[in-house]
Write a protein that binds this DNA or RNA. Structure first.
Length: 102
DNA sequence: GCCATGGCTAGTA
DNA sequence: GCCATGGCTAGTA
């Protein structure tokens, strides 16, 4: 597994319960500011086997990005079980976005 | 070639 | 709604 991938996994694992990060934010934290799509790809193909808190990653607009209805529903349930408020598939980034401090 | 993006326009109201 | 972006997993041979 490549360093970038490992960094992405580590960043995702570091998101605390009850908080979210965006794809772009994860990419930046992993050292590749323009690799937001790769984050999506990693999540798509690796979240199951690596037991990631995949539900805590959303898009820059604060929305659940999954197209698949069932999966999107599952994500919403997981988020709500941690106290994150989801309204019309959208989360308030102001309230729930995790900002790593320096 | 895939991907669960993102940011910036054009075009509507 | 368009399109530039980029690092690589899964699956075949």
């Amino acid at each position: 597994m490549k360093p970038f991938t490992e960094d992405v996994l580590e960043v995702i694992r570091s998101i605390p319960e009850g908080r979210v990060m965006t794809y772009g934010q994860v990419a930046r934290a992993a050292g590749s500011p323009r690799a937001a799509r790769q984050v999506a790809r990693v999540l798509h193909s690796m979240s199951r086997k690596y037991g990631l808190p995949w539900h805590r990653v959303i898009n820059a607009k604060g929305e659940i990005a999954l197209k698949n209805e069932e999966a999107a529903y599952e994500q919403q349930m997981s988020l709500e079980s941690e106290g994150i408020v989801v309204i019309n598939g959208r989360i308030s980034l102001n309230q729930f976005q995790y900002e790593k401090e320096s």
